[in-house]
Simulated scan of single mutants.
Amino acid sequence: MAAYIKDLSIRWADLDPNFHLRHTAYYDFAAQARIDLLHSIGLTVHFMQQAEFGPVLFREECIFRREIRYGDSIQLTSKLKKARQDFSRFSIQHDFIRNDGTVCAILTIDAAWINTRIRKLTLPIIEDKTILEAMPKTDDFEWVQ
């Protein structure tokens, strides 16, 4: 998979008083795309609930380059930017791209996995680690320590 792609529909409620996409909408769209990406590789919400683990964010940052306005056709791509070999920590990059190819925003998160019962960091409880290795990666993807 080259990238996980979602087509976005900008709603009136997503706009701010300047009639462009409000900053919190970027974060909402990216959060949904991450869960959908995990679902697409087999890490469904139901599976994570049963295994008592889920993603937890350490950092979330958005670089705003161009306005997104009501009626714009936007694709949101999601790719793994970096990860530890055991996938205990990872970063995902989301690019908000207008249909003319303009990158309007780049949102990056740094995350890990939490045991949802004992509320402590954990390794992802997945028998087949190739599931996570199958995630689409950025061109500058790197394995980190």
Rank of each mutant, 00 (worst) to 15 (best):
C62R: 01
Y70R: 11
D72G: 10
F64L: 03
S78H: 05
S78C: 14
F58A: 14
K82R: 15
L76M: 11
K81Q: 15
A83Q: 04
T77E: 12
A83W: 03
K79I: 05
K79F: 02
R66Y: 07
I74E: 01
Y70C: 07
R84V: 04
L57V: 15
P55I: 15
E60A: 13
R59V: 13
Q75M: 13
R69Q: 11
C62F: 01
E67N: 03
R65C: 00
G54C: 13
F64W: 12
R66I: 03
P55S: 12
L80S: 04
E67R: 02
Q75N: 09
P55W: 07
V56L: 09
Y70S: 12
E67W: 01
K82E: 15
C62W: 00
A83L: 07
R65T: 00
L57D: 09
R59L: 08
I74L: 04
F53R: 02
L76W: 05
E60V: 05
R65A: 00
G54M: 09
I74W: 00
F58N: 06
R69S: 13
R66M: 08
F58P: 03
L57M: 14
E60W: 02
Y70E: 12
I68M: 03
T77W: 07
E60M: 11
K79Y: 03
Q85L: 14
L57Q: 11
I63W: 05
E61N: 12
R84P: 01
S73N: 07
R59T: 13
V56K: 06
R65Q: 03
E60H: 06
G54N: 09
F64I: 00
R69C: 14
V56Q: 05
Q85A: 15
G54E: 12
L80V: 06
D72I: 10
V56M: 10
F53N: 02
C62I: 15
K81Y: 06
S73G: 07
G71P: 05
R66W: 08
I63P: 02
P55E: 12
P55Q: 13
I63D: 15
I63H: 09
L57P: 03
F64K: 00
F64Q: 00
R84A: 11
D72N: 12
R65P: 00
F64T: 00
E60Q: 10
L57C: 06
Q75P: 04
R66C: 10
E67G: 01
Q85C: 08
Q75I: 10
C62Y: 01
L76F: 06
S73K: 10
R59K: 10
F64H: 05
E60K: 02
K79C: 14
I68G: 00
L57K: 06
S73D: 07
G54I: 11
V56C: 06
I74H: 02
I74P: 01
I68S: 01
S73V: 11
L80R: 02
G71N: 12
F64N: 00
L80K: 03
Q75Y: 05
A83H: 04
Q85E: 15
R59W: 05
C62E: 01
A83M: 06
F58H: 08
